Simulated scan of single mutants.
Amino acid sequence: MATQQKPKTAEQVKAEFKAKGLTVTKWAKDNGFEPTSVSQVLNGFAKGNYGKAHDIAVALGIKSREPVAA
């Protein structure tokens, strides 16, 4: 059985971007998302519970695609 990786925090993602010299805009365009939407997820304005914000959160590693067993 595969182990599920622990989701990252938005702060961890921002730190990774900074360490790699990667901008939110560059990451967003490379992954097919609107930069504004990615910024909203990273800054907590969009919670990423459903829709495009959820897709972004999953791509960033903030949320798991699979539901977590209770």
Score class of each variant (00 low, 15 high):
65 R>C: 10
7 P>T: 05
4 Q>P: 07
48 G>C: 03
25 T>C: 03
58 V>F: 04
61 G>L: 11
18 K>V: 10
66 E>Y: 09
24 V>C: 01
4 Q>T: 15
20 K>I: 03
61 G>Q: 12
15 A>G: 04
67 P>Y: 07
41 V>I: 05
39 S>A: 11
57 A>D: 02
56 I>C: 01
53 A>N: 08
31 N>S: 05
19 A>H: 03
40 Q>K: 14
54 H>N: 13
2 A>I: 14
52 K>R: 14
31 N>V: 04
12 Q>I: 02
52 K>C: 10
40 Q>L: 14
33 F>K: 04
3 T>H: 15
62 I>L: 07
19 A>Q: 07
2 A>S: 14
61 G>V: 11
55 D>I: 09
34 E>G: 09
35 P>A: 11
9 T>A: 08
50 Y>N: 13
20 K>F: 04
54 H>V: 08
42 L>A: 00
2 A>F: 14
17 F>H: 05
53 A>Q: 06
16 E>L: 10
43 N>W: 11
34 E>P: 08
37 S>Q: 15
31 N>Y: 00
54 H>W: 11
56 I>K: 01
64 S>P: 06
3 T>V: 15
60 L>R: 04
46 A>C: 09
63 K>L: 05
65 R>H: 13
27 W>K: 03
64 S>Y: 04
67 P>G: 13
59 A>E: 08
19 A>V: 04
40 Q>T: 12
23 T>F: 03
62 I>D: 00
42 L>E: 00
29 K>V: 06
28 A>V: 10
4 Q>W: 12
62 I>F: 00
66 E>H: 10
18 K>P: 03
24 V>K: 02
36 T>W: 02
64 S>M: 08
15 A>R: 04
3 T>D: 14
70 A>E: 13
44 G>N: 07
28 A>D: 08
30 D>Y: 02
36 T>F: 03
60 L>T: 03
10 A>M: 06
26 K>P: 00
54 H>K: 15
47 K>N: 09
60 L>N: 05
2 A>R: 15
16 E>K: 10
26 K>F: 01
44 G>R: 04
19 A>N: 06
29 K>L: 09
57 A>L: 04
32 G>Q: 03
42 L>T: 00
11 E>H: 05
